[in-house]
Design a protein around this nucleic acid. Structure first.
Lengths: 343, 343
DNA sequence: ATGAAAGCGCTAACAG
DNA sequence: CTGTTAGCGCTTTCAT
């Protein structure tokens, strides 16, 4: 039996087992090179024999690597975040880090205390996929010079390291594609307009329209907030428009999916009666019927890169902020086609 | 400014600020009652003023509450787990615990070392939603008398605390429902048969058939493993059966969803040509078209209860194992109807 | 009711 | 290269 119930094996046990001091054990385990190969091997063997596993708390208390990064998200609920999280998890595994998940729904009242406790807690760094990052969050992070990376959201201050995608270009391409298909009345469901990416996407849409000499019709723009409920409502507004659009673009897949519901409830067929196009490329979009045409954000890769950047910053907290933007890609599936000839 | 960059406020600072010893601060913060109300208030005020937030590592190193529980999952990918995780998160927030997520895809080779490190790490307890829990996992957990709760999976040893749902009954009800609709040739896609719930569900199906005097046709039972790919393949086998079933039950929603794909690719319409029924009630099922009829497991509630049980066990590790089973419920939506009269 | 002091398990100077 | 000695920030006896 490697260990007794309760008590666990410490470096003291290992040290005793192979007749060296605890510092040698520590060194053999961490700063591999500084120790004589033979000694090192002896230690490693003893550790294995005893079933030693380092106590992460003690290690990080004593100033060593913390080996944990935090992930702050609004919730575990949606495919979009899960996709990013997958990339994060994989990259973290590679570096042998663990993941602490923090959700923003908690501690509504005292959010800054929450961030404070994150910073003071286990994590060596923080990844944020929070649509709306309260300024105070960033203030605390900055004040403590705590390493963090924001995913899929720009911070206007320019003080943050962020990983995002070409929101403007993606929506420009999507809109152009629909126009190429022959659509001229294209409805648009916005994201939460306090968020940079939502603004950029709307902008891409508008520019594509104007580049193709299609006059902008404000009544074709319905406000959403990236969540299904609002997407559904916005779709209804568009569908009940006296001069209904022949295509609808949603600012993300989640809203596109619920818009599809609304469309069906209006007894319209996709894509025969109306085309629908999303943004993100979450897995659900692939299993819908018809399969959703969308603008792919390389979510998993974004997660990966965010981790790399964060790890980098954990090593060197004073690195200047970086901003990495990945390319989006239009994924043509089955939810868009040329509009039916007008009656 | 509550704190300088880097350095953070400790109990020493608080102690100095209000002229008491660190032990008093510690007591005021934790074992509230043992300290004079006036002193306590003084400490609390000073702490607030300084922006003190406890260092979780130090606290748990020194023997205090760890305030973190681990969640071991195969991945963050699917709606089923996300749903459970939501309940977990909410309940954890209530108790002011944090969540460390561990994925089993990591450390394939040395899994038991992985569990070892979990046990030795930050977590005070562990929640497992792992379809297949290697025996060694449980051995390690048991050996260290480490508190854990398994969700939606029975452990045959009877030594584990588990939260699950009425798998047998749920599938019995579902099958009976389909039979009531007039189906007699009902295909069944199994889960991974090493897993107890998969066996129970198949059993429920078989019993319902026999209770209704429908002879069991083994060729109508296709093996799946709870994952979309296998579900898809299994559905294809069923669909190419010389005497095709008029309804298909999948052992979970994920497979039901991919089976729907297969059905469409065979140019069959749901539910006119064939009915399809799932198990779990994940959110995707509600946004599919047609909406998936399924057996609802109260996933979120299962997560909630698991947390309660775990917290209970963290307080009292020697509590005898409990087994809580929640009721499933048939959710009738649009993917099932009476079979078309045979040609 | 409160203070002093001893660790929790580990890392990181500092000596040798 | 390796051992000795301080702590990291906190909880907890043990005194007072």
């Amino acid at each position: 039996m490697p260990s007794q119930p309760g008590k666990s094996v410490t470096i003291y046990d290992v040290a005793r087992e192979c007749g060296v001091s605890i510092s040698t054990v520590s060194r053999a385990l961490n700063s591999a090179e500084i120790v004589k190969p033979a000694t090192r091997q002896k230690v490693l063997d003893a550790a294995a024999r005893l079933g030693y596993v380092a106590n992460a708390q003690a290690r990080s208390l004593a100033g060593g690597r913390a080996n944990v990064v935090g992930l702050l998200v609004p919730g575990l609920i949606n495919g979009y975040i899960a996709e990013i999280a997958r990339g994060i998890d994989e990259e973290l595994a590679r570096a042998d880090y663990n993941l602490m998940v923090y959700t923003t729904r908690r501690h509504r009242s005292q959010e800054s205390a929450y961030v404070d406790s994150i910073v003071n807690g286990f994590s060596a760094g923080l990844l944020l996929i929070v649509p709306l990052v309260p300024v105070q969050y960033l203030a605390i992070l900055a004040e403590k010079n705590f390493p963090y990376v924001m995913i899929d959201q720009a911070d206007n201050s320019g003080m943050s390291t962020v990983v995002d995608a070409t929101n403007w270009q993606g929506m420009y391409d999507a809109t152009s594609y629909l126009i190429g298909l022959g659509h001229t009345r294209i409805g648009f469901i916005t994201g939460l307009m306090d968020i940079r990416s939502a603004v950029d996407r709307l902008d891409g849409y508008k520019t594509a329209l104007s580049d193709h000499q299609i006059p902008l019709d404000d009544s074709l723009i319905a406000r959403g907030d990236f969540w299904p409920e609002e997407g559904y409502k916005a779709a209804n507004v568009l569908l009940e428009h006296p001069d209904r659009p022949t295509a609808i673009i949603a600012s993300n897949d989640l809203m596109a999916l619920s818009a599809m519901d609304a469309i069906r409830e209006h007894n319209l067929t996709i894509p025969d009666d109306i085309s629908i196009l999303g943004f993100d490329d979450i897995p659900q979009g692939r299993i819908m019927f018809p399969r959703l045409t969308t603008v792919r954000q390389p979510l998993e890769q974004m997660g990966r890169i965010a981790v790399k950047l964060l790890l980098e910053r954990i090593e060197a907290p004073d690195l200047p902020p970086k901003h990495i933007t990945l390319a989006t890609e239009l994924i043509q599936r089955d939810s868009c086609q040329s509009p039916a000839p007008r009656r």
